[in-house]
Design a protein around this nucleic acid. Structure first.
Length: 560
RNA sequence: UGGGAUGUAGUGUAAUGGUAACACAGCAGAUUCUGGUUCUGCAUUUAGGGGUUCGAAUCCCUUCAUCCCAGCCA
């Protein structure tokens, strides 16, 4: 639901308001539905549709059905049917008792088709696919009527019955609606209603060998379920007349209406099932749930929260303009949400050893660090501190650049929650690389403040060397290098980002992180938001995925 | 080029005849035990051309641009 203080209603809400005002809604309540075809995993584009449909139902006190649109057994699979349900639940929506499948209506759909034939409104056609194409005409030229268009009703009835009984091979016959072959709208040039397919359906098995088409099934399914507002994407605008035709067939119990909105497009990614499937099948990613994928299983494993997705969809809005949303908006929403809920912890991704020369050898202590400055309820935790620590390589410069306020010789910085340290000397390897920084600490600064109240410009994170756990950290970046993958060369694969995944294996993390729970939202202080990987994380070998970086104004400034 | 739709800052979305706005992105600055957060400020917008009107993003005409449709896919 919309959590903004106020937001202008979008055009679908305005339509609903108007329908409610004029009592055009049976039962006085709206009914929406999310109708995916179970032929792949759900992605961010589906999330927009799911959130739109379910939120509308919540907002108006109506209900939202989940209907699996399973009318093409060649493409559909139980794997997808299950995954879709899991994804919707993860998003936080519940269809309650209203789980349906288009296949639930096969018998009814069949009977309606028979009545259509009886009424002379549908006929069995024997045109081959090639002839069909030819007879259909073109965008600028009307089609012509099939010789079978005036087949006697009795014969149509008999043939359709034979189709259903499996007496004819695939492609031999087709049941078509008798509409208008000269219509400028090609969807009205006697659309196919039923085709023969000897395929095993994931739910009905081999019970049927004729399967109803989308333009016939979808509107009638909506009508049967009492859907009031059937919301779909823009490319179905041309199908609305077919939708209206189907819902006006005699004895259809109710007349739903279709409204179209613009699908969600995001730059730097691809959203078509075909392309995503290709990435998976060819090992360009590690599966549908690869954290770089725009699939719901992918972003979930990446560490995006359902709330951040809802915020994103809310900010994107609902309109009829074909648009491409900036990836940065998605990342903003993720940060915005995670900032409130992520537990702050310290993890060093690129370790550099620091030794405190005036800290007693062999000793250690615990310092108290807050879990989330944004959330007073989050409390604090105790983190071990000792003579030898790790900090980020980035946080030390032997010769500091302008504006640098981290550790450098002679500079005093605060080690988060612990003490003030001053760098005095470095140890180098034979190549001249700094491999260790020698510091002294001020025992008076324990807890991060001193009695004299002196100001410290820099605060950096750290872990105690002897207490730290080794961890693997996966840094994810955009899957594509360009805003519109494939736009320049015609092949989206040309724009794949070779560095979309960087795996760091020598990271040092706070000991408590070994007990992190997969899916727990974390912020590695100053590094970004991370989540334990839901597949590979173990206490012995922790693996973390970077969800999103922190906003970073320093690297920009530094680059100038 | 037949039909259907759509054009508002860089991006997305409001404003439906009465001061063009919100968010993201960008750029400054302040605050800060995260160069994060928070706060403040700045720059940038009605596709073009006509018309109606005291007044037009909004109404009319026209041009242009973009998207969708010729599956026995959804």
């Amino acid at each position: 639901m919309n959590t903004e203080e106020t937001r202008n209603k979008h055009f679908i809400e305005k339509i609903i308001d108007d329908d409610l005002l004029h009592s055009r809604v049976p039962e006085g309540t709206i009914v929406t539905r999310f109708p995916p075809e179970p032929n792949g995993y759900l992605h961010l584009g589906h999330a927009k549709s799911i959130i739109l449909n379910f939120s509308l139902a919540e907002e108006y006190g109506g209900r939202c059905h989940l209907r699996l649109d399973d009318t093409n057994p060649e493409k559909e699979d139980m794997e997808y049917i299950n995954a879709i349900q899991a994804d919707i639940k993860w998003l936080g929506f519940d269809w309650g008792d209203y789980l349906y499948h288009a296949s639930d209506y096969y018998q009814q759909l069949y009977e309606i088709a028979v009545s259509l034939i009886r009424d002379g409104k549908a006929y069995v056609d024997s045109l081959t696919p090639e002839q069909m194409k030819e007879y259909r005409g073109t965008l600028t030229q009307p089609g012509k009527e099939s010789p079978d268009r005036n087949r006697p009703i009795e014969e149509n009835l008999r043939l359709f019955e034979e189709m259903k009984a499996g007496k004819h091979p695939e492609g031999k016959y087709l049941l078509r609606a008798k509409l208008d072959m000269a219509s400028p709208n090609i969807n009205l040039r006697d659309p196919a209603l039923y085709r023969i397919k000897f395929a095993t359906h994931p739910r009905t098995g081999d019970a049927w060998c004729i399967y109803p088409m989308y333009d016939y099934t979808h509107p009638i399914s909506d009508a049967i379920e009492g859907i009031t507002h059937s919301i779909c994407t823009l490319e179905f605008e041309d199908h609305r007349p077919a939708y209206d035709w189907a819902t006006s067939i005699d004895h259809i119990p109710h007349t739903p209406h279709q409204y179209e909105f613009a699908r969600l497009n995001i730059n730097y990614t691809v959203m078509s099932k075909r392309k995503l499937l290709y990435l998976v099948k060819n090992g360009l990613v590690d599966g549908w749930d690869d954290p770089r994928m725009p699939t719901l299983v992918g972003v979930r494993r990446r560490g995006y929260s359902p709330e951040s997705l809802k915020m994103f969809v809310d900010k994107v809005g609902v309109a009829k303009v074909e648009s491409v949303v900036d990836f940065a908006l998605l990342e903003f929403c993720v940060r915005e949400d995670l900032n409130k809920r992520a537990k702050r912890v310290m993890a060093v991704l690129d370790p550099l050893k620091v030794t405190i020369t005036n800290y007693p050898e062999g000793e250690s202590e615990f310092v108290e660090v807050e879990n989330n400055p944004e959330d007073p309820e989050a409390g604090t935790r105790m983190v071990p501190f000792s003579r030898t620590l790790y900090i980020e390589q980035e946080d030390f410069m032997e010769v500091p650049i302008k504006g640098y306020r981290r550790l450098y010789p002679g500079n005093e910085v605060r080690f988060k929650g612990a003490y003030y340290l001053t760098a005095n000397d470095v140890v180098k390897d034979e190549d001249g690389n700094v491999i260790e920084v020698l510091c002294t600490y001020d025992p008076e600064s324990r807890g991060g403040t001193t009695p004299d109240g002196r100001k410290i410009r820099g605060t950096i994170h750290w872990v105690s060397a002897e207490h730290a756990k080794d961890a693997t950290v996966r840094l994810y970046d955009k899957l594509f290098l360009t805003e519109a993958p494939g736009e320049a060369t015609g092949d989206y694969l040309d724009d794949i980002n070779p560095d979309s995944l960087i795996t760091l294996t020598d990271c040092k993390v706070e000991p408590a992180l070994a007990e992190a729970a997969p899916g727990e939202y974390l912020q590695f202080m100053r590094n970004g938001y991370f989540v334990p990987d839901s597949v590979d994380f173990t206490a012995d070998a922790p693996v973390f995925n970077r969800t999103v970086t922190l906003k970073d104004s320093w690297s920009k400034k530094k680059g100038k």
